[in-house]
Design a binder for these strands. Structure first.
Length: 217
DNA sequence: TACCAGGTGGGAA
DNA sequence: TTCCCACATGGT
Protein backbone atom coordinates (compact mmCIF):
# COMPACT_ATOMS: atom_id res chain seq x y z
CA UNK A 1 0.00 0.00 0.00
CA UNK A 2 1.23 3.46 -0.83
CA UNK A 3 2.36 5.24 2.29
CA UNK A 4 0.38 8.21 3.45
CA UNK A 5 3.41 10.50 3.37
CA UNK A 6 3.99 9.62 -0.30
CA UNK A 7 0.37 10.42 -1.05
CA UNK A 8 0.79 13.78 0.66
CA UNK A 9 3.89 14.55 -1.42
CA UNK A 10 2.07 13.57 -4.59
CA UNK A 11 -0.82 15.94 -3.85
CA UNK A 12 1.56 18.70 -2.78
CA UNK A 13 3.51 18.43 -6.04
CA UNK A 14 0.23 18.44 -7.94
CA UNK A 15 -1.54 21.38 -6.30
CA UNK A 16 1.14 23.21 -4.33
CA UNK A 17 0.70 24.74 -0.87
CA UNK A 18 -2.91 25.56 -0.01
CA UNK A 19 -2.09 27.85 2.93
CA UNK A 20 -5.13 26.98 5.01
CA UNK A 21 -6.71 28.55 7.02
CA UNK A 22 -7.28 31.65 4.87
CA UNK A 23 -7.54 34.77 7.05
CA UNK A 24 -7.30 38.48 6.35
CA UNK A 25 -3.91 39.12 7.97
CA UNK A 26 -3.89 42.83 7.14
CA UNK A 27 -7.33 43.30 8.67
CA UNK A 28 -6.17 41.79 11.95
CA UNK A 29 -2.95 43.83 11.95
CA UNK A 30 -4.89 47.04 11.48
CA UNK A 31 -7.70 46.22 13.91
CA UNK A 32 -5.50 44.57 16.50
CA UNK A 33 -7.82 41.56 16.50
CA UNK A 34 -6.81 37.91 16.83
CA UNK A 35 -6.72 36.04 13.54
CA UNK A 36 -7.40 32.77 15.37
CA UNK A 37 -10.87 34.06 16.15
CA UNK A 38 -11.56 34.44 12.43
CA UNK A 39 -10.61 30.77 12.03
CA UNK A 40 -13.06 29.78 14.76
CA UNK A 41 -15.88 31.82 13.25
CA UNK A 42 -15.12 30.43 9.78
CA UNK A 43 -15.02 26.87 11.11
CA UNK A 44 -18.62 27.17 12.29
CA UNK A 45 -19.86 29.01 9.22
CA UNK A 46 -18.40 26.41 6.87
CA UNK A 47 -20.31 23.49 8.38
CA UNK A 48 -21.87 21.72 5.40
CA UNK A 49 -21.46 24.87 3.37
CA UNK A 50 -19.28 25.83 0.43
CA UNK A 51 -16.45 28.20 1.26
CA UNK A 52 -17.73 30.71 -1.31
CA UNK A 53 -20.88 31.21 0.76
CA UNK A 54 -18.83 31.47 3.93
CA UNK A 55 -16.76 34.21 2.31
CA UNK A 56 -19.92 36.23 1.69
CA UNK A 57 -20.81 35.99 5.37
CA UNK A 58 -17.25 36.89 6.38
CA UNK A 59 -17.39 39.91 4.08
CA UNK A 60 -20.57 41.05 5.85
CA UNK A 61 -18.87 40.64 9.22
CA UNK A 62 -15.83 42.56 8.05
CA UNK A 63 -17.93 45.37 6.57
CA UNK A 64 -20.56 45.75 9.27
CA UNK A 65 -19.07 44.02 12.28
CA UNK A 66 -15.80 42.44 13.28
CA UNK A 67 -13.96 39.12 13.08
CA UNK A 68 -13.81 38.71 16.82
CA UNK A 69 -15.48 36.65 19.49
CA UNK A 70 -16.14 39.76 21.57
CA UNK A 71 -18.16 41.18 18.67
CA UNK A 72 -20.08 37.89 18.40
CA UNK A 73 -20.79 38.04 22.14
CA UNK A 74 -22.05 41.61 21.99
CA UNK A 75 -23.95 41.82 18.72
CA UNK A 76 -27.73 41.47 18.68
CA UNK A 77 -28.84 37.95 17.69
CA UNK A 78 -31.05 39.12 14.81
CA UNK A 79 -28.23 41.27 13.50
CA UNK A 80 -25.82 38.34 13.68
CA UNK A 81 -28.27 36.17 11.75
CA UNK A 82 -28.56 38.81 9.07
CA UNK A 83 -24.79 39.11 8.71
CA UNK A 84 -24.12 35.40 8.39
CA UNK A 85 -27.21 34.59 6.32
CA UNK A 86 -25.32 33.81 3.07
CA UNK A 87 -23.57 30.88 4.77
CA UNK A 88 -26.88 29.07 5.27
CA UNK A 89 -28.27 27.44 8.45
CA UNK A 90 -28.02 30.93 9.89
CA UNK A 91 -30.41 30.35 12.80
CA UNK A 92 -28.39 27.46 14.20
CA UNK A 93 -25.04 28.96 13.31
CA UNK A 94 -25.85 32.25 15.04
CA UNK A 95 -26.75 30.39 18.23
CA UNK A 96 -23.64 28.21 17.96
CA UNK A 97 -21.39 31.21 17.45
CA UNK A 98 -22.88 32.86 20.52
CA UNK A 99 -22.33 29.68 22.57
CA UNK A 100 -18.75 29.33 21.38
CA UNK A 101 -17.96 33.01 21.87
CA UNK A 102 -19.18 32.79 25.46
CA UNK A 103 -17.31 29.55 26.07
CA UNK A 104 -14.03 30.76 24.58
CA UNK A 105 -13.79 33.77 26.82
CA UNK A 106 -10.36 34.81 28.11
CA UNK A 107 -10.26 31.96 30.62
CA UNK A 108 -10.35 29.41 27.80
CA UNK A 109 -7.46 30.02 25.46
CA UNK A 110 -7.33 28.15 22.18
CA UNK A 111 -3.65 27.35 22.65
CA UNK A 112 -4.28 25.29 25.74
CA UNK A 113 -7.89 24.15 25.51
CA UNK A 114 -8.55 20.41 25.47
CA UNK A 115 -10.41 18.68 22.65
CA UNK A 116 -12.87 17.16 25.12
CA UNK A 117 -13.78 20.61 26.38
CA UNK A 118 -14.45 21.91 22.88
CA UNK A 119 -16.65 18.91 22.13
CA UNK A 120 -18.91 19.79 25.04
CA UNK A 121 -19.91 23.02 23.31
CA UNK A 122 -23.16 22.69 21.40
CA UNK A 123 -22.38 23.15 17.73
CA UNK A 124 -18.80 21.92 17.89
CA UNK A 125 -18.53 18.39 16.61
CA UNK A 126 -15.34 16.42 16.01
CA UNK A 127 -14.45 17.97 12.69
CA UNK A 128 -15.01 21.55 13.84
CA UNK A 129 -13.11 20.88 17.09
CA UNK A 130 -10.14 19.44 15.24
CA UNK A 131 -10.18 22.26 12.67
CA UNK A 132 -10.13 24.82 15.50
CA UNK A 133 -7.35 22.97 17.34
CA UNK A 134 -5.22 22.55 14.21
CA UNK A 135 -5.71 25.83 12.38
CA UNK A 136 -6.41 28.22 15.25
CA UNK A 137 -4.47 26.49 18.03
CA UNK A 138 -1.53 25.00 16.11
CA UNK A 139 -2.21 21.66 17.74
CA UNK A 140 -1.44 18.30 16.16
CA UNK A 141 -5.01 17.17 15.50
CA UNK A 142 -5.67 15.79 12.06
CA UNK A 143 -9.03 16.87 10.63
CA UNK A 144 -11.26 14.24 9.05
CA UNK A 145 -14.09 15.34 6.78
CA UNK A 146 -16.24 13.83 4.06
CA UNK A 147 -13.52 14.38 1.46
CA UNK A 148 -10.96 12.60 3.64
CA UNK A 149 -13.26 9.62 4.23
CA UNK A 150 -13.92 9.39 0.51
CA UNK A 151 -10.25 9.83 -0.33
CA UNK A 152 -8.85 7.07 1.88
CA UNK A 153 -11.83 4.86 1.06
CA UNK A 154 -11.07 5.08 -2.62
CA UNK A 155 -7.30 5.43 -2.77
CA UNK A 156 -6.34 3.14 0.10
CA UNK A 157 -9.47 1.02 0.61
CA UNK A 158 -9.53 2.12 4.22
CA UNK A 159 -12.81 2.74 5.97
CA UNK A 160 -13.60 3.52 9.54
CA UNK A 161 -15.30 5.92 11.88
CA UNK A 162 -14.00 9.40 12.60
CA UNK A 163 -11.67 8.40 15.44
CA UNK A 164 -10.29 5.40 13.52
CA UNK A 165 -9.34 7.55 10.55
CA UNK A 166 -7.95 10.33 12.74
CA UNK A 167 -5.70 7.81 14.51
CA UNK A 168 -4.65 6.31 11.17
CA UNK A 169 -3.46 9.70 9.89
CA UNK A 170 -1.84 10.72 13.15
CA UNK A 171 0.01 7.42 13.53
CA UNK A 172 1.11 7.30 9.89
CA UNK A 173 2.30 10.86 9.34
CA UNK A 174 5.29 12.69 10.81
CA UNK A 175 4.21 14.86 13.72
CA UNK A 176 4.49 18.03 11.67
CA UNK A 177 1.99 20.89 11.85
CA UNK A 178 2.68 22.02 8.31
CA UNK A 179 1.96 18.56 6.91
CA UNK A 180 -1.22 18.20 8.97
CA UNK A 181 -2.54 21.56 7.75
CA UNK A 182 -1.55 21.13 4.12
CA UNK A 183 -2.53 17.49 3.75
CA UNK A 184 -6.09 18.11 4.92
CA UNK A 185 -6.40 21.09 2.58
CA UNK A 186 -4.85 19.17 -0.33
CA UNK A 187 -7.26 16.27 0.11
CA UNK A 188 -10.15 18.75 0.01
CA UNK A 189 -8.73 20.36 -3.12
CA UNK A 190 -8.45 16.99 -4.82
CA UNK A 191 -11.95 16.14 -3.62
CA UNK A 192 -13.42 19.30 -5.10
CA UNK A 193 -11.67 18.81 -8.44
CA UNK A 194 -11.93 15.06 -9.04
CA UNK A 195 -12.78 12.89 -6.06
CA UNK A 196 -16.33 14.15 -5.79
CA UNK A 197 -19.27 12.13 -4.56
CA UNK A 198 -19.71 11.31 -8.24
CA UNK A 199 -16.01 11.05 -9.06
CA UNK A 200 -14.33 12.23 -12.24
CA UNK A 201 -11.96 9.25 -12.36
CA UNK A 202 -11.31 9.61 -16.09
CA UNK A 203 -9.79 13.04 -15.54
CA UNK A 204 -8.07 12.28 -12.21
CA UNK A 205 -4.31 12.89 -12.52
CA UNK A 206 -3.50 10.23 -9.92
CA UNK A 207 -6.00 7.56 -10.95
CA UNK A 208 -3.13 5.11 -11.56
CA UNK A 209 -2.50 4.75 -7.86
CA UNK A 210 -6.17 4.61 -6.82
CA UNK A 211 -7.19 1.24 -5.41
CA UNK A 212 -10.82 1.83 -6.25
CA UNK A 213 -11.60 0.89 -9.84
CA UNK A 214 -15.28 1.49 -9.26
CA UNK A 215 -15.79 3.97 -6.43
CA UNK A 216 -18.84 3.08 -4.44
CA UNK A 217 -19.15 6.23 -2.33
C1' DT B 1 -34.49 20.62 -11.67
C1' DA B 2 -31.56 18.19 -8.63
C1' DC B 3 -27.53 17.85 -6.28
C1' DC B 4 -23.82 19.37 -3.44
C1' DA B 5 -21.03 22.14 -0.26
C1' DG B 6 -14.42 22.56 4.31
C1' DG B 7 -21.28 19.20 9.74
C1' DT B 8 -24.05 18.80 13.90
C1' DG B 9 -27.58 17.34 17.03
C1' DG B 10 -31.52 14.86 18.13
C1' DG B 11 -34.72 11.23 17.79
C1' DA B 12 -36.13 6.65 16.10
C1' DA B 13 -35.07 1.90 15.18
C1' DT C 1 -24.82 1.99 17.55
C1' DT C 2 -26.48 3.28 13.33
C1' DC C 3 -29.55 5.62 10.42
C1' DC C 4 -32.35 9.47 9.13
C1' DC C 5 -33.77 14.10 9.17
C1' DA C 6 -33.78 19.22 9.80
C1' DC C 7 -31.11 23.00 9.28
C1' DA C 8 -30.71 27.08 4.37
C1' DT C 9 -28.08 29.62 1.00
C1' DG C 10 -25.98 29.74 -3.47
C1' DG C 11 -23.35 27.56 -7.43
C1' DT C 12 -23.30 24.19 -11.18
Amino acid sequence: MMRLKKLYELLFNLYGPQNWWPVDEEYHRKKGTDKREEVIIGAVLTQNTSWKNVERALENLKREGEFSLSFIREVNMEELKRLIKPSGFYNQKAERLKDIAHFLNPTHRVKTIQREELLKVRGIGKETADAILLYAGDRLNFVIDKYTQRFVGRFLRIRGNYEDLKSFFEESLPRDLYIYKEFHALIDEHGKRYCRSTPLCGECPIKDICLSASPSF
